[in-house]
Amino acid sequence: MSESDREGDAQVDVALIARWQRGDQRAATEIVGRHAQALARYAAAQGVREAVEELVQDTFVRAFNSIGSFRADSSLRTWLFTILKRLVLDRQRTERRRRNQVELDETHAVQEFDALDGMVADETLVRVKQAVDRLSGLQREVFALRVTEGLPYSEIATLVGSTEGACRVHYHNAMRAVKEYLSDD
């Protein structure tokens, strides 16, 4: 996908929104199909392990209820990420209050992953996953947005509430930390 493809991709989303606004419900399904899995990955990168689909569904419901506030100067996916992130923070706050429990820490994240039922994964990928899970929350988020979603630093900075320069540094530090972890075998 080239830059113009990326732009074309954004235009596809804008056209789908317009179709939905004209009464075509199938356009909504297409939008969900285009972004649901990326939202699930983004949720996972933030340590969400439970009720991921419910979270993604809530994200879309909120998005469609306030579609008028979407401006095409960022991608629809980034806008959806923003909504999901707020929901994750709300959920974490609620859970902390309810169970008086600290945020998912690194050890917990790794244990959750190791305990995944019936998971048969390549051993190398498991090691890589462990390396990523050991990053700090912010590093992991920037790393995921850059490596897995390919977002430009400008949009990553908006999402994580930082600057492009800082995000670039987080990415490179994360890369270095992952390589160090893997070379320690």
Binding site: A28, E53, F64, A144
Partner: peptide, 23 residues
């Protein structure tokens, strides 16, 4: 490898189910 690893354990989203809840 990182991209593949980050999809590990991420459940497959049910697009039709999600879409059915939309306004």
């Amino acid at each position: 490898q990182v991209r593949a690893a980050q999809s590990l354990g991420v459940p497959r989203m049910d697009v039709a189910a999600i879409a059915s809840a939309l306004p």
